[in-house]
């Protein structure tokens, strides 16, 4: 399991997000640290609204214009500091340096364009010159690589014709087309069938391991963390309350929130306490 090196893929220090609202300034993320080594999968876990997604969106600089992101450091290996980059140049990072997999794959794909066109638009956006044919061949290879049985047919179809699992595979293929070294997956299995969830997570973690990439996996499922991640960051109310190796955190949670979180996971053979 310990294939990762000591080399850092991503190092974030003291990331904070503030959003201007009609009711004043709010701070959904306050001083988050996040370290991802090369070859490592780091989980971010926490309940909905704890700031996990906002942290990710803040890193990618995809928050609406009324918000500000600050950090002492947001170093991406092989690129530079993400927050020192002007927003208009972030486009070079997204998709090419950082691949993104969102929840609800149907929502992620364009409903009107064929899948093939969406691969083409992606490559056109990042390469100076790419022909429709070249892009199609690359897309075919990518779809094949994510375990799609009939890639040619999928390429020639639309998002709504796919099953949820297939659509998420397409999204993963898109996210890895430009071989980014870091993947960010924001609850990638929410809304999918339980059986498909495991397949998708296996696929995604396999891709990370194969290519020596790193990944940040955002989830609210501790089971997923235990199975796929090496290290975990527990977030609560916009802050990191605990972090460390999955082993340490799961066996000996220090923070009361983490303790409750772990206690709330039903274990086989244990009687469910429904009195609360």
């Amino acid at each position: 399991m310990n294939a990762q090196s000591e080399e850092l893929a991503l190092e974030v220090r003291n990331l904070a997000v503030s959003i201007k609202t009609p009711h004043g300034l709010v701070h959904p993320v306050k001083g988050v640290d996040l370290t991802v080594h090369k070859g490592e999968i780091v989980g971010i876990v926490g309940e909905s609204g704890c700031g996990k997604s906002t942290t990710i969106k803040g890193l990618l600089r995809l928050l609406p214009a009324n918000s500000t992101v600050t950090a002492d450091k947001a170093q991406l290996a092989g690129y530079g500091d993400l927050l020192a980059t002007p927003v208009r140049r972030m486009r070079e990072v997204r998709g090419a340096k950082i691949g993104f997999v969102a929840q609800n794959p149907f929502g992620s794909l364009n409903p009107i364009y064929k899948i093939e066109r969406q691969f083409y638009e992606l490559q056109k956006a990042h390469k100076t010159k790419v022909s429709r044919k070249e892009s199609g061949e690359i897309a075919l290879r990518m779809l094949d690589g994510v375990g799609i049985v009939n890639p040619a047919r999928v390429l020639d179809g639309y998002a709504h014709q796919l099953s949820g699992g297939m659509a998420q595979r397409v999204v993963i293929a898109l996210a890895t087309t430009l071989s980014p070294q870091l993947l960010i997956a924001d609850e990638p299995t929410t809304g999918l069938d339980a059986t498909v969830q495991a397949q998708i997570l296996d696929l995604i973690s396999g891709l990370v391991r194969q290519e020596g990439r790193s990944m940040v996996l955002v989830t609210h499922d501790l089971g997923v963390i235990a199975q796929y991640c090496q290290r975990v960051v527990v977030m609560y109310d916009g802050q990191v309350v605990e972090h460390g190796s999955v082993m340490d955190v799961m066996v000996e949670p220090q923070h009361p929130y983490t303790q409750r979180l772990i206690a709330s996971v039903p274990k086989p053979g244990e009687k469910l306490d429904v009195s609360r």
């Binding site: 990618l60 486009r91 070079e92 990072v93 997204r94 969102a102 992620s108 364009n110 999204v171 996210a175």
Partner: peptide, 14 residues
Amino acid sequence: HSQQVFFARAMGLP
């Protein structure tokens, strides 16, 4: 504000 537009941005489309 749809997710597909968010994803398109996250993929670095202009």
